[in-house]
Nucleic acid binder design. Structure first.
Lengths: 244, 244
DNA sequence: TCAAAAGTGTTACGGATACACCCATGT
DNA sequence: ACATGGGTGTATCCGTAACACTTTTGA
């Protein structure tokens, strides 16, 4: 950041910003075969009563991550989650609070991506439930440029899943291979892989430990419960891996 | 000092930001077999006389991309380049100008990633050449957290190259397959692929058009000049592609 | 004629795909 | 006993890796 100006203008032309953090919180409902996004109904202008992403403005002494975490904790109670930064949207005019041509304060949004476990996620109803999960393919018109942000996050979700072990951050401690398969099916679509091939591939990678415990769900042969062995995974870290 | 009040908290606790844009500008020197990063010597505090990334603070009415572009144009003259957003660093205290505990203005940096053609890049010497290419493996201690940003950008460079056709944004209009190979070699390292296999794979993808023109460089059989056919590439867009 | 650079061909291996099949349980 | 879901095996295909070979030029 070298503000290379030699003039006096220096201060006057620099834009003043408030920085917002908006988080696309995903969860995967394998039963319902849906990907869900957490939305909140806005109680302030602008975009009053529109649905939008959970977000907040960054406070004094607070890091971006802290702010993202604060919003998350306000809206939802979870034990397991995965968070990472997504993209920063900062063009002038993206927030109606910036009066056109006024050179007032600008609003910049750093978006975050989060993945939580659907089954255990408890929404914290504020007032009369201005908070809800929406299927990603049935989103309403959102406030600001939030539709665009969700779209961006969705691409990231699929990418992350294919190349990194995020799934295990969000699955229970132990799970069956069918659970895992269902999870991937839901996110990546019907035709990503055959079950039996998925199975062999994953097991060959060697970081899924069979606990020996069997679980039976209705009819059918009982399934083994597996555990993600992060030690066994460690050496594979940042190697190009495909989880397809 | 921002007006502090424990009451109408809402307004008073929000941090005020200046937003900076820092760009990691890469070029690939295939002759010298080096990856280069463009650095500028700071002429202001903080970090006076340290080398750092070209950057600026965002002005009124200016988008982040505009700011990134403005800096680029100030430092370097190029025809071809590729630019994309990298990451946003915004923790409190990352800039010494934020007085500790003062709740003064915060400095947030949105970093960008750029790739330019080395051969045609002309550095715009300001004063006595406070601007230079540095080999990525021989960087000095940089201002702020810029070493970290470069590291992040370097990862992105290699990734981009493997999975997307950025190379062609930065190669001449026509080039030999050896040129292309040298380029990949330089970025991805000695052991990424055999030349002949690289060759067959790339040609099979079908978006490299042989111009028929031959060029000869010293001894050896003349090489065909190829052109990147963006129409032929279009259908492959956003399909998972490996350029290795 | 020989070295250097460009370009072609060939073989072997390993992973992915598409199945067919076997196993254990509930009803 | 049979439907249901879990789990195993196998034949085939195709991309990749390794490397030998041919072609065309300059010196």
């Amino acid at each position: 950041m070298s503000e290379s100006g030699t003039k006096q203008v220096k201060q006057s032309v620099l834009a003043d910003f408030k920085v917002g953090v908006d988080t696309v919180i995903f969860s995967v409902d394998t039963e319902g075969n849906r990907i869900l996004v957490l939305l909140v109904k806005r109680e302030d202008e602008p975009f009053l009563k529109y649905w939008g992403l959970p977000g907040t403005l960054v406070r004094n002494g607070e890091s971006l991550e802290d702010a993202a975490h604060r919003v998350l904790v306000e809206k939802i109670r979870v034990n397991n989650l995965y968070v990472e930064q997504l993209y920063t949207f900062g063009g002038p005019g993206r927030d109606p609070r910036e009066l056109p041509e006024s050179f007032g304060v600008r609003y910049l949004s750093v978006s975050y991506f989060a993945l939580v476990r659907f089954a255990e996620a408890q929404l914290i109803a504020e007032g009369m439930s201005g908070i809800a999960w929406y299927a990603i393919n049935k989103l309403p018109q959102l406030a600001f440029d939030h539709n665009q942000i969700v779209e961006y996050g969705y691409r990231r979700l699929r990418n992350k899943l294919e190349y990194s072990p995020v799934a295990f951050d969000v699955l229970p401690e132990v799970f069956t291979l069918s659970d895992l398969y269902q999870f991937y099916m839901t996110v990546l679509g019907e035709n990503f892989s055959d079950y039996s091939n998925f199975r062999t591939r994953l097991l060959k990678l060697g970081f899924l430990a069979d606990t020996g415990v069997k679980v039976t769900r209705g009819a059918g042969r009982p399934a083994s419960l597996y555990r993600f062995d992060s030690d066994a995974f460690a050496p594979l870290k940042d190697k190009p891996l495909v989880f397809i």
